[in-house]
Nucleic acid binder design. Structure first.
Lengths: 180, 180
DNA sequence: TATTGTTATACTCTATAACTATA
DNA sequence: TATAGTTATAGAGTATAACAATA
C-alpha cells in the first residue's frame, strides 16, 4: 500500500516507459501453444455466455490498445460521454446510468478529477448534491478519445456488413431484456 | 487479509447466510431511478463495445444467480469443463486454453482443489509438470452445474429463435478473429 | 427520517517479476 | 539455459456498511 502510493507520487519524471500491465498473457511456451495437441473445450463453444465473455475480453484488449498512452478504460470513457451529454449531472444519476453503486463511482471520479478532466461542485439548491461537468481539457481529450473509439469500433466490425452489425446489436439487446 | 483467511476457514459451520456480495447495486433512490428525468447516454448505445460490455455484465449476474449456493463463477466453471474434457491436463495447457497467465491459474486451482473438486499431481515422466483431474465430487458437482448452466442459457436465449441464437453466436465469433 | 457523497473495507480477476525445482 | 509451477505484489473493478452533512 505504501509502496503503491509512493509509486503514484513518483510518476511524471520523464515518462519512463509507463509500465502498464500487459493485456494478454505471455505465451506459456515459446510457440505459445500447448506441447501435446489441442485442448478440448467441451461444451463451452456452444454456450452463449462463453462466446460473449470471450468476445468481450478480446474487445476490451483492443480498446485498451486503441487508447494506448491516453490510458482510458471503457468504463471511464463511458462516464465522460455521459457527463458530456448531461452537464451538471449528479453523481447518483451517473451511478444509475452506469449501473454502479454510488460508492463505486467515487474513486473513478476522483481519478477523472485528478486528471483535470471533470469538475464536480455542490449545487446551490441542495448542498448535498454534486453536479459534474467536463473541463475544457476533458472535452478536448474526449474529442480525441472518440476518434480512437471510432477506429476501434471499425476494427470490431471489420468482418461484418453494416446490416450484420445492426443485427448483432439488436440480438444483443434482446438478451435478458428483463434486466435492463 | 487475516480476516479474509479467517472467513475462508470458518466456512461450513451451519451455513449461516453466506453473505455473498450483491451482484447489482442497490437502487440509488427508493424508486431506483434518478430524480429528474432520464440520463442521456450519448453515443454509447451505438457502440458495439458498449452493448457487448453491458450484455456481458447482465449475463454474468444471471449466471451467478443461477449458481446461487453452489458458488461458482463462469471462469471456474469453464476450468472444470476443460479439465473434464482433458483428463490429466497440464496447468500450462489450461492456462493457454483459458487465455490466462499460468500464475493466474494457481489461486483458482487452489480454490478448486481446496473444495475437493480437482486433483493435481506431478506426472511421472517430468516431475515439473502437474496433471489435473476431476475428483468424483468434482464430476458430481459439474453434473449439477451443467444443468443450471443449461437453464441459464435457456434464459439468455428466451427471446431468440434457435436460428437467431446461432446467428448471434456466429456474429460474435466474427469479431476480431485476428485475436482468436 | 431520508438522501448524497464519502470512507473503510473486502473480494474477484488478472497481470508481471522473481523464485524453486526440475529438465 | 529453458520450462513448470509458485509466490509476492500490484492494480482495476466492484460491492457493502457505516458515517457526516444536509434536507
Amino acid at each position: 500500500m505504501a509502496a503503491s502510493a509512493a509509486n503514484k507520487m513518483a510518476v511524471h519524471a520523464a515518462k519512463p516507459a509507463v509500465r502498464r500491465p500487459r493485456l494478454l498473457p505471455k505465451p506459456a511456451t515459446a510457440s505459445g501453444a500447448p506441447a501435446n495437441g489441442t485442448v478440448q473445450l467441451g461444451l463451452l463453444p456452444n454456450l452463449l455466455g462463453y462466446q460473449l465473455r470471450l468476445t468481450q475480453r478480446l474487445v476490451f484488449d483492443d480498446f485498451a490498445e486503441a487508447m494506448d498512452e491516453l490510458d482510458m478504460s471503457p468504463g471511464l470513457f463511458g462516464m465522460l460521454i455521459v457527463i458530456e451529454a448531461n452537464p451538471g449531472l449528479k453523481q447518483t444519476e451517473l451511478a444509475y446510468a452506469a449501473r454502479l453503486d454510488r460508492s463505486t463511482l467515487v474513486p473513478a471520479l476522483d481519478k477523472l478529477e485528478a486528471r483535470g478532466l471533470v469538475t464536480r461542485r455542490a449545487v446551490l439548491e441542495d448542498r448535498r448534491v454534486n453536479g459534474m461537468w467536463l473541463t475544457p481539457e476533458g472535452s478536448a481529450l474526449l474529442k480525441k478519445l472518440k476518434q480512437r473509439v471510432a477506429r476501434h469500433e471499425q476494427r470490431l466490425a471489420r468482418n461484418l456488413t453494416p446490416v450484420e452489425r445492426v443485427t448483432l446489436m439488436t440480438l444483443l439487446e434482446r438478451i435478458l431484456p428483463e434486466r435492463r
